[in-house]
Design a binder for these strands. Structure first.
Lengths: 153, 153
DNA sequence: TAAAATGGTCAACGCGGTTGACTGCATTGA
DNA sequence: TCAATGCAGTCAACCGCGTTGACCATTTTA
């Protein structure tokens, strides 16, 4: 297999794009709120680092605190996230997933896993393992582990 | 290596994001116009299918013809693209890369190749080949070859 | 304890897309 | 052959989702 040098980033983009499209189709089919990547990344942060604030979310997403606030406001409206007063800091508000939020994360994980599995059916599970390792290697070693998932749309 | 099912799409996003950031840093460092993915995809179309029109570009990018027109107008202003009258169709205008446009494509390809190479240094060229195959397999077999590169930048 | 820093909000704006209406050329078919 | 329909392209208005900037209230620092 010959490949043009520099083609892989394009394929990466196309693959990711196709996967997100597949996900959005499912979300739309379920009649769910129009959840964007930023929302997904928010869920993941709140799951990993319980007790985050809007400012921390902003840093995590790589957006301004105002933008992060808007995202949180939406998620609160939809009942996925709650804002509670901070225990010691009167200015801050602590973000937390509601039950609905946690249930959605599980559901979303399932959907992503399904999409990943479709790929695995074509190329095999071992290849998927390798890809996982190799992507991690790029993110950690080339990109320096910068885990900013700036929502790109 | 154990991996969480459904994690790969996230890693795909992070990797692509890190790569585009690396590219943008280089473009910015060169003092070049703020070229976005949509512009890159446009260059590629014009290189592959000479004589495309705005409507064809719109289909390729997955945007409206109005949006495609705006993109072309920018590229024309910057001197990367020309619009020439269509040989037989008085309504249509044929898009073509200028010399500057072609030179930029070569340059951009080099930059992407460099970024890809950095990855290759970490994981090895054979792995890169596999990844190339596997990404192609997803795009072609799972996503049905839908090559719409809707610019999400 | 005054000054500076920080979490959060409100308002105005901008970029890059969308929808909708329109012009003028091209194609179709009675 | 020529009216009806279709299609390339443009103009204008709008919209989503981010930004910048100003501000308040609380906390931290000196």
């Amino acid at each position: 297999m010959t490949r043009r040098r520099g083609e892989i980033p394009f394929l990466l983009a196309m693959t990711y794009r196709a996967m997100t499209e597949a996900l959005h189709e499912r979300i739309a089919a379920e009649g769910r709120e129009p959840l964007r990547p930023a929302h997904g990344y928010t869920f993941r942060l709140l799951l990993d680092r319980g007790g985050a604030t809007s400012v921390e979310l902003a840093e995590h997403l790589g957006v301004t605190k105002q933008a992060a606030s808007k995202i949180v406001a939406e998620l609160e409206d939809w009942g996925y996230v709650e804002r509670r007063p901070h225990a010691t800091d009167g200015r801050a508000r602590v973000l937390a997933l509601t039950d609905k939020g946690r249930a959605y994360v599980r559901h979303a994980d399932d959907m992503w896993a399904d999409i990943e599995d479709r790929w695995g059916e074509v190329i095999g599970a071992e290849r998927l393992d390798r890809i996982h390792e190799d992507l991690r290697a790029y993110v950690d070693e080339v990109a320096g582990g910068r885990a900013v998932l700036r929502p790109i749309w």
